[in-house]
Amino acid sequence: MSASVVLSSLANGVMLGGLYALVALGLTLIFGVMKIINFAHGALMMWAMYASFWLAKLGGVDPYLSLAVTLPVGFAAGYAIQRAVITPVLEAPEHNQLLMTLGLALFLENLALLAFKADPRTLLVSYSQASVSLGPILLSLPRLLAFAGALAVTLLLFLFLKFTDLGKALRAAAEERDGAALVGIPVRRVYAVAFGIGTACVTAAGAMAVPFFYVSPEVGNTLVITAFVVVVLGGMGSFAGALAGGLLVGVVESLGGLFVHGSLAQIGIFALFILVLLFKPSGLLGAPSA
């Protein structure tokens, strides 16, 4: 195995990790603000992927351009889901919140199965197979774009939370729900915005994944479990952690694929996940657990 193969694999792992980070970003935002683990996150991404897929297939719209439509729709869907589905269980025991999002995931996933059938579809765009060479390293172009997109979204989100009034209100509501309500922050609306943004993140991830990832009703299932791993690795609620965790998982999966056959590399990721849950449930970058 030559060094350039390993290097290319490493680099492509980093790129894939960027996509995972973007999926995890929305999950970690929703968790950070509401302490709710959104099991429907993957199903929402799957719907976003189908949206971009069909817009490209039937309307000839490039997946990246389709974001102009899917992002606002994704945000609105997230906002509506929060109001209709999550708000009723905000005060409920944790396991009922889990079951709520699980029910939503079951519904969305099987609705897609009904609408699109089980067969995986792939979208071939002109740059699906394109690659960029960087010295000895060969980088897949769509993965590179997804990686850049992930970095851009992370940065935007960080700036939004740090400097805008809405972002500050969001952080306040995350920190101390009652206190935020006391000083006049409309906590429920802010929560809905958080869910909307989380869904928009995963919508972006969906569109960026479509040029190089298959679409099927089950794909969300696969990705959301990876996203859980990433979020727990990076520390629930931490943005930097989601990015670092995403890259780590991407690299492990990509390098692992060189040495073991099939999907066995996933075992390494799950094992890592279990170890982190056991020994440092606050995540590799998170604050020490209380």
């Binding site: 396991h95 999907s263 066995l264 075992i267 279990i274």
Partner: peptide
């Protein structure tokens, strides 16, 4: 032993089952 409760316990069980699924597949 490591005090996992609630959602963390739910998730670790999911991960254990997934390890077995991937192993059985391979």
């Amino acid at each position: 032993r490591f005090g996992l409760r609630g959602a963390y316990f739910a998730l670790i069980m999911l991960a254990f089952a997934e390890i077995f699924r991937v192993a059985a597949t391979n």
